[in-house]
């Protein structure tokens, strides 16, 4: 069953100075038991979509259903069956224990205290913070606090859970725990886990399907494997001396669909990573680099990543995109 249905969803923000098209006719469906990732650079519209699906924000046009309920007309019903957490929140009562905090949130859904207590124990066990439950919130480390937020989002046994950049700023161990939990919750409890992220690794590792989004438009939706294999173009990495950084836009090079350049100041090298229209352009690029007096130390053809899928459509990587789009 499709727990999330989005049809031609558009959202425009109008401020005094400008008009932003944050979502542009977005359509997608997510089934139960699926871990779904919304992957895109800053300002792509991820948070906006999640805000609409969690009934905080109204769409300008289009329609969205969560658990079969319309997010505009049946917002109250939607609110009973969803959970939400964002890495940018700092939620909870500092001078109250973790356990009491979770109990408080369970009351927002009208849970009985006995059921709530059972849920709290279960979730604390799953996320391994049982020993923290009776400590006041302000004494908890960031990692535990973040895990607590994830637990909170699941307290009401929701059908669909939305996470906005869930592991952003999280320590490696907590992030690993949380990712494992996402997969478990989807597979064992048939929940829909809907995450917004700009972490490619996370999207590849745990998402059953990924929607790549940029400037409010969905560029592609598929499994990470299919997305990568659909990119039939070669991805090449050139390691050069710092002179390689002169090329500020790799698409200037002949045959390059898109790419990124990273300078490593410490080793005085540059990494030019490009997607080529065809392998025949490899030689040409080597020629161009030689003419520009860029020394190439090494080059190799790489397995494509999800970012390459993004680059192949947009021409630039996440970082370049974030610099060019004023957020």
């Amino acid at each position: 069953m499709a727990n999330v249905v989005v049809e031609n969803l558009t959202r425009v923000f109008e401020t005094k100075s400008r008009k932003v098209l944050a979502l542009d006719k977005v359509s997608l469906e997510v089934r139960s038991g699926e871990v779904f990732g919304l992957l895109g650079p800053n300002g792509a519209g991820k948070t906006t979509l999640i805000r609409i699906l969690t009934t905080l924000l109204l769409p300008t046009s289009g329609r969205a259903l969560v658990g079969g309920y319309d997010v505009v007309k049946e917002a109250k019903k939607v609110r009973g069956i969803i959970g939400f957490s964002s890495s940018s929140e700092r939620v909870g009562f500092d001078f109250v224990t973790a356990r009491r905090n979770l109990w408080f949130f369970s009351q927002l859904y009208g849970l009985s205290t006995s059921i709530a207590n059972r849920r709290i124990e279960e979730l604390a066990a799953l996320l391994e913070f049982q020993d923290q439950l009776d400590r006041k919130l302000y004494t908890l480390t960031t990692g535990y606090r973040q895990r607590l937020n994830i637990a909170r989002a699941l307290i009401n046994d929701p059908l669909v859970v939305f996470f906005d950049e869930p592991t952003n700023g999280m320590d490696v161990f907590s992030a690993k725990k949380v990712r494992e939990l996402f997969v478990k919750e989807a597979k064992i409890n048939s929940r829909t886990m809907f995450l917004a992220t700009h972490n490619m690794f996370e999207a590849e590792e745990i998402c059953d399907r990924v929607a790549i989004i940029d400037k409010g438009r969905i560029l592609a939706i598929d499994t990470p494997e299919n997305l990568k294999s659909s990119l039939s173009k070669p991805v090449v990495l050139f390691e050069t001396d710092v002179a390689g950084a002169q090329i500020d836009d790799p698409t200037q090079l002949e045959g390059v669909v898109g790419g990124t350049i990273r300078v490593d100041d410490e080793n005085e090298t540059a990494k030019i990573r490009v997607i080529l229209r065809d392998e025949i352009f490899l030689e040409k690029i080597l020629d161009i680099l030689e003419k520009r007096r860029v020394r190439v130390y090494n080059y190799q053809i790489l397995e494509p990543t999800l970012e390459d899928v993004f680059i192949s459509q947009v021409g630039a990587g996440f970082a370049e995109r974030e610099r060019s789009v004023e957020v």
């Binding site: 969690t54 905080l56 609110r79 969803i82 964002s86 929140e89 700092r90 909870g92 927002l108 859904y109």
Partner: peptide, 13 residues
Amino acid sequence: RSGMLYLYITSPA
């Protein structure tokens, strides 16, 4: 500011 209002609004409370 903390994000709590978001949770209040999007819960049935």
